[in-house]
């Protein structure tokens, strides 16, 4: 099961790699590291979008029901984690 999950992840990563782009030449970033960034980059971007929406929802509720300016969650704190 776990092997299949990893295989899926690799395939997803490769599927994200569509057009060719030169890397900075002097350091080899490593194939595995590039594929992995394809995978976790999607997660990271999705988390950032989710965090932005979550902030909007919070702002909406704090404006509608709460005492204004009470939100202490910053975009940086909610990003990706």
């Amino acid at each position: 099961m776990l092997r299949n999950a990893y295989l899926m992840a690799v395939l997803t990563g490769i599927a994200l790699l569509t057009s060719t782009q030169d890397a900075y030449a002097y350091l080899d970033p490593g194939t595995a590291s590039l594929i992995l960034q394809g995978i976790i980059g999607g997660i990271a971007a999705a988390a950032a979008v989710a965090a932005a929406y979550w902030l909007r929802v919070k702002h909406f509720f704090s404006r509608t029901f709460g005492r204004g300016g009470n939100s202490c969650i910053t975009a940086a704190e909610t990003d990706n984690e």
Partner: peptide, 14 residues
């Protein structure tokens, strides 16, 4: 592998 593009938002997210 053919290296595609990583959106800036993804890079910053990582």
């Amino acid at each position: 592998v053919k290296q595609g593009k990583l959106p800036l938002a993804s890079l910053k997210g990582i």
